[in-house]
Design a protein around this nucleic acid. Structure first.
Lengths: 249, 249
DNA sequence: CGCGTCGATTGGTCTGATCAGTTCGGTGCT
DNA sequence: AGCACCGAACTGATCAGACCAATCGACGCG
């Protein structure tokens, strides 16, 4: 409002776009705890008036914060602060695996090679019987799938379930983002074509056995082997085949 | 509009919001390689006409894709496909460290505990003399800073430079996202208050020595120790102090 | 008391105008 | 000819106001 508005007295800021002001203000209010998860914000019209911008600009600000996973809009009901859980804030992550090609996919796998072994080891140390049972059930679903999209989905679920056991939601969200559906679909198709589906199945079995034994070292090793196997295949695929193709549906 | 508009003509898709169509179409075009990094898109007005939406909706779509790091807008010049490098696509990541509180901060550090040791080990194996020299220079800047915001910035740069040596841009982008300025500022304030700045300095020195020796194992161990030290302090801070406070600029 | 209807609230979309940077070609001076 | 300057055309940024669509709650009927 007044020129003495800010805690930062010097507003030397290069005149920022109008739309950005509401974004920063709202983000700050959340960071400071003045807005808490689930809180309802004023209507877009009121917000626009409060921040002295048009409704269009306010809408763009809200949309930005929605994309970032900070806000949540319900048509006809209002704008709310999201749960602010990592899964919300990291949803945007998936675009990386969604549109990345070539080298970046290799990089993604290298990161997974750092995360999944550590996560699997942690899971081995913490897993409850019920959690292990669930993982086992998913494993069955992979085998019985026969290579279709169900198998791909089950494969994803398998790894997600393991990471979830660690109890670290941030880790789980990051790992989810690094594993996209289309990405895994390519790997499975490649393996099936090469007749190496058995190899993947063996990897999964080893990981599962390590979890059952609650052996972190074995779990780490098994997970490392698995990711490396996928990475090895992807490298071969990128060299030989078309690096830009993506699978539909 | 017309009565034949239809409950669902053929596409089973649950009628998606109008704004979403351009988003998905453009994302698909990029994933398929029909739009490449740096390509210029038609004007917002033309795009709106092409996708049969109003310009407002088209703008919201563009803004969403901009927030995701897929597009880039230059006022007066046009809309362009971003470089699609991981650093672009993962920029949104920082909001996590920016507004997370309490438990999530611990989770973030746990993830860093998985990534930084592996990254530092990799860096030790790959670093060139020039890269090591740069890291050494940054280290000097931390020591000479005296605990001010310059020191904090140098601390961040130190870790970023190391991760950058791995050559994995995706890893670097993720790690950047997990290390926020305000977060590190809190840690430094805490350590200075406790008179333990020397401890951090020692950690950094150890990491640097391991890199110089090109010893991956030592680098991994040193990095692990460092992150654990930070985690230890954070845990104490969260228990004793106010868990929601954030430092300004 | 239960439930459906209808109206007020609120986000979603559209239209068209105007403001603000960018780009590029023309103009005129040297 | 070469170069600096300037302005018109282009393009995104912002605004204003209207109307559509989903939601929620109060009112009234059975």
């Amino acid at each position: 409002m007044s020129p003495t508005d800010g805690p930062s007295p010097a507003p030397p800021a290069t005149r920022m776009p109008v739309t950005r002001r509401p974004i920063e203000r709202i983000k700050a209010m959340i960071a400071e705890g003045r807005l808490r998860p689930g809180d309802r914000l004023p209507t877009e019209r009121d917000l626009a008036h409060e921040f002295e911008v048009s409704r269009s600009s306010m809408r763009e600000a809200v949309r930005t914060l929605t994309t970032l996973g900070v806000l949540e809009v319900r048509h006809g009901a209002g704008v709310y602060v999201s749960s602010l859980r990592p899964a919300d804030l990291l949803e945007t992550f998936s675009v990386l695996a969604e549109i990345s090609q070539g080298d970046t996919l290799i990089e993604v796998l290298q990161v997974r090679r750092m995360l999944e072994p550590a996560a699997t080891a942690l899971a081995a140390a913490r897993a409850t019987d019920a959690q292990l049972e669930r993982v086992g059930a998913i494993l069955d679903r992979i085998s019985s799938g026969g290579g279709g999209r169900e198998t791909v989905a089950a494969d994803l679920t398998f790894h997600q379930a393991i990471v979830q056991i660690t109890g670290n939601a941030t880790l789980a969200a990051i790992n989810d983002g690094l594993s996209s559906r289309t990405f895994n679909a390519r790997v499975w198709r490649g393996h099936c074509a090469d007749g190496q589906a058995a190899r993947l199945r063996q990897d999964h079995e080893r990981i599962y056995q390590a979890l059952l034994a609650r052996d972190p070292d074995a779990a780490r090793a098994a997970a490392t082997m698995h990711v490396m196997e996928v990475e090895r295949w992807l490298r071969a695929d990128l060299e030989s085949g078309s690096p830009d193709r993506a699978e539909a549906g």
